[in-house]
Design a protein around this nucleic acid. Structure first.
Lengths: 230, 230
DNA sequence: AAGCCTCTTTGCAGTAGCGCAAAGACAATC
DNA sequence: GATTGTCTTTGCGCTACTGCAAAGAGGCTT
């Protein structure tokens, strides 16, 4: 998948190349390897971050020790904004699943950048708004839809953001265990395994070790939406 | 419950009284009666709204017709921001449960107000961030906690934002049906009814028609948190 | 190539919660 | 004060999903 340049990230929409360059120049950069943590839940935070390359899995730990996958983020995605503008601790942990580079603007820098480039603030609000919308959908799914459909939707979303065309279908191009999928959809790794096995029998997906390839995306859409199977 | 003045709303934090007055003056006002809708899911939207008085129930309709209660909002709370800065349609419907007054700033007005008062933009981001954080918690609850605990947490949250001290406990001061509670917690009205009946037998709550009074808040906290019952 | 670790599969039994149905309670209306 | 409509309760059967356990498979390391 050809990486889009960072300047086309949603955060920079509507800004001139010169402005983007200036904003990028104000960031600190840091590299991380696989399995590193870019942040730990509970750590103090006073900055906004952007993933410049690679992929990070954001998870939330419940008080009883259960883990919830909030989302996977990749190039151009930001994180830490929630913490920077409201709470002062990271509400999530970020584990690198694919070697990454991360940009950081500390809070004061970001505030002054926004004053200089109002569009940056609007973009940030649009990003936060979009995230709220996604979460509303996820809450709706969790409250009203069955597990099978939730898994189908999660796979389609992952295909959207990390899908790679192959000869036989679309490969979700990140290490994705049954446990990960379970923590994204509010079920157990056992149920995920059973559902994927069934779909494999139906020729819809080809599951592997920490790997899922979608063979018949349309069949998955049929399961994900409220359609009669045509 | 004495209504806090609107100027102390989170949106206006850190702004001078004069600034707040100017911002308020730029808003349009409108009144609504009980059961009116302040917005309908799918309606075009190009404004940010604030509830000045009363209470509104925000719901989301799933494609299959099932309803999800997103949250109840009251004086000082804003809505429509998600739509104004990202999608162009209301993602939720807002039904008035207690006669309300609503302020509205259209998008262009809000953008220029933010340019004049940067703090306003920061506050807006803090509000959106806070909402994301709440939704993360809700997702976590839905994925990892049992129904009884989710209901306990929902009641405690409602008590926080609409609780009224009584001689015997805390009354949740808005019309709240079993169905409402079910749609807030991802269960059915039957299960809510059964749980409340059990709690009534334990002397923890006193349920009524569209009404819940909490008699022993601490017992509810014990259920809501991961504590051994002391 | 062997061994090891982690991830995955699947059988099976158990249960939390669903959802229908029918009766009961409450509040508003005529 | 009777009636009507909505909201609530509760019994009962059911099912979707859980969670353990044990075996199987895949990818590293040495």
């Amino acid at each position: 998948m050809p990486e889009a340049p960072l300047s086309s990230a949603p955060l920079f929409e509507g800004l001139s190349a010169a402005d983007v360059a200036a904003i990028l120049a104000a960031a600190h950069r840091r590299r991380y390897g696989r399995a590193d943590f870019v942040c730990h839940q509970g750590d103090p935070v006073d900055a906004v971050y952007m993933v410049a390359g690679g992929r990070v899995r954001l998870t939330q730990l419940e008080v009883d020790g259960q883990e919830v996958v909030i989302r996977f983020i990749g190039p151009g995605d930001i994180f830490g904004a929630v913490a920077a503008f409201k709470v002062t601790q990271f509400p999530v942990s970020g584990e690198v699943v694919e070697a990454s580079e991360v940009l950081a603007w500390d809070r004061a820098t970001m505030v002054s950048l926004i004053e200089r480039h109002p569009r940056l603030g609007q973009n940030l609000m649009a990003i936060l708004s979009g995230r709220i919308q996604e979460m509303r959908e996820r809450i709706g799914d969790l409250q009203t839809q069955r597990v099978e459909r939730r898994i189908a939707r999660a796979l389609l979303r992952l295909a959207q953001q990390a899908g790679q065309r192959t000869a036989t279908g679309i490969l979700i191009n990140l290490p994705l265990s049954r446990q990960d999928l379970a923590e994204m959809t509010g079920t157990t790794l056992y149920t995920v395994s059973r559902v994927l096995s069934q779909w494999e029998a139906d020729g819809i997906v080809k599951p592997g070790r920490e790997r899922v390839e979608i063979l018949r995306p349309h069949a998955l859409v049929t399961i994900a939406e409220d359609l009669p199977s045509p």
